[in-house]
Simulated scan of single mutants.
Amino acid sequence: MKKILLSAVALLMLFSCQNDTTEITPSADAIAKRGCASQEVLAAQMKADPSLALRMNEIEAFTQKSMLTGRLVNGKIEIPVVVNVLYRTTAENISLAQIQSQIDVLNKDFNAANSDFNQVPSLFAGVKANVEISFVLEAIYRKATTKTSWGTNDAMKIASQGGIAPTTPTTRMNLWACTIGGGILGYAQFPGGSSSTDGVVIDSKYLGNTGTAVYPFNLGRTATHEVGHWMNLRHIWGDATCGSDLVSDTPTHNAANSGVPAYPHYSTCSGNPVEMTMNYMDYTDDRGMYMFSNGQKSRMAAVFVSGGSRASFRL
């Protein structure tokens, strides 16, 4: 298991070098590998707003301090969710049932109530986590569009560009369901970004576990992965060869995994650890991911503590 020993200088380097990272982008015709644009969007936001790196460094320092001192949230954290549906076709105008199925998946995955949680290998049984955060669907807004795809430049969040502006994003998690394109299943804004673009975007073909949801990303885990980013989790491979995800109890991965790797799957990084391929923050198929770790739980909880970047969501 890796240890986190990041100085303020190292943190600055971590966030100021994000433009050098790349995402695995699957084919737009037949998506066989998970595509998440969160890191790509972060790089663009940091280029447009250099002060974002400083804010994220401050958030990271606060997170590490909160984790070390135990200053984490006690009590209930319930996230109100506003879903914004942008549709061109009837299929894209996803049903209430499909939207609610996604909320149900989030509640199961973040509360260790998912039926595949018991598949976590014994090697990781001691660190598998019940994050204890719940979600409630508060509102759905729908808007017809002529766009065939929205891309990752946040246009779906801007009314003047045909999108839907977020609803009270400091106390609501906004989720946009639309056709993203480019082989991207979804992306999220990390803590520290502008409230006018805060939230999670999921391609409507990969939202929930019913209706138009398309295999092998038809179990609602795209949103689980992206909400993890929204709560300050990094990809488990650290978006670099043998990189750090800033969590101490996840093994070092040499790169993203896809499909459903056979267990045990060994890393090529130092020590050749068994990779936690079933972690929600990898790139495996929906049926291949079914756990967060205790370290990830602590990292997520830190954003909700008093003074944290998402403390306004506390009940």
Score class of each variant (00 low, 15 high):
residue 78 E to S: 11
residue 97 A to L: 11
residue 144 A to T: 12
residue 163 G to P: 09
residue 62 F to E: 08
residue 137 L to K: 07
residue 107 N to Y: 06
residue 185 L to S: 10
residue 189 Q to P: 00
residue 186 G to W: 05
residue 174 N to A: 12
residue 73 V to K: 06
residue 157 K to N: 08
residue 164 I to P: 01
residue 80 P to Q: 05
residue 161 Q to E: 14
residue 102 Q to M: 04
residue 98 Q to M: 06
residue 188 A to F: 05
residue 60 E to V: 00
residue 169 P to K: 07
residue 76 K to H: 09
residue 136 V to C: 07
residue 106 L to R: 05
residue 160 S to V: 12
residue 122 S to L: 12
residue 89 T to N: 12
residue 117 F to Y: 13
residue 93 N to L: 08
residue 74 N to W: 00
residue 140 I to Y: 01
residue 169 P to S: 10
residue 155 A to G: 05
residue 176 W to E: 01
residue 124 F to A: 07
residue 161 Q to W: 07
residue 129 A to Q: 12
residue 120 V to N: 09
residue 100 Q to N: 13
residue 61 A to M: 10
residue 188 A to N: 03
residue 163 G to S: 10
residue 189 Q to R: 13
residue 141 Y to G: 08
residue 102 Q to N: 11
residue 84 N to K: 13
residue 113 A to N: 13
residue 114 N to D: 15
residue 132 E to A: 15
residue 102 Q to S: 11
residue 139 A to W: 05
residue 107 N to M: 06
residue 149 S to C: 09
residue 91 A to Y: 10
residue 135 F to R: 02
residue 186 G to D: 06
residue 68 L to G: 13
residue 82 V to K: 04
residue 85 V to P: 03
residue 156 M to G: 05
residue 177 A to P: 08
residue 130 N to M: 09
residue 68 L to Y: 09
residue 149 S to T: 13
residue 135 F to S: 06
residue 112 A to G: 06
residue 187 Y to F: 14
residue 179 T to N: 15
residue 59 I to E: 04
residue 139 A to F: 10
residue 101 S to K: 01
residue 117 F to R: 09
residue 159 A to F: 08
residue 181 G to E: 00
residue 187 Y to I: 05
residue 179 T to V: 11
residue 108 K to I: 01
residue 105 V to N: 06
residue 155 A to N: 15
residue 188 A to H: 03
residue 54 L to E: 07
residue 127 V to H: 01
residue 95 S to A: 10
residue 92 E to N: 07
residue 66 S to K: 12
residue 154 D to F: 13
residue 71 R to T: 09
residue 117 F to E: 06
residue 61 A to N: 00
residue 125 A to P: 00
residue 143 K to Y: 11
residue 127 V to P: 01
residue 92 E to I: 03
residue 137 L to S: 01
residue 186 G to M: 08
residue 185 L to P: 04
residue 67 M to R: 10
residue 159 A to K: 13
residue 82 V to I: 14
residue 173 M to Y: 08
residue 85 V to W: 04
residue 94 I to N: 02
residue 89 T to W: 08
residue 112 A to T: 04
residue 163 G to C: 10
residue 153 N to E: 15
residue 166 P to C: 10
residue 118 N to V: 13
residue 97 A to G: 07
residue 162 G to N: 11
residue 127 V to W: 00
residue 126 G to V: 06
residue 63 T to E: 09
residue 180 I to S: 02
residue 144 A to Y: 13
residue 75 G to I: 02
residue 128 K to Q: 15
residue 90 T to P: 01
residue 119 Q to T: 11
residue 85 V to C: 02
residue 177 A to L: 15
residue 149 S to V: 11
residue 113 A to W: 07
residue 167 T to M: 11
residue 98 Q to E: 14
residue 148 T to F: 08
residue 175 L to W: 07
residue 162 G to H: 09
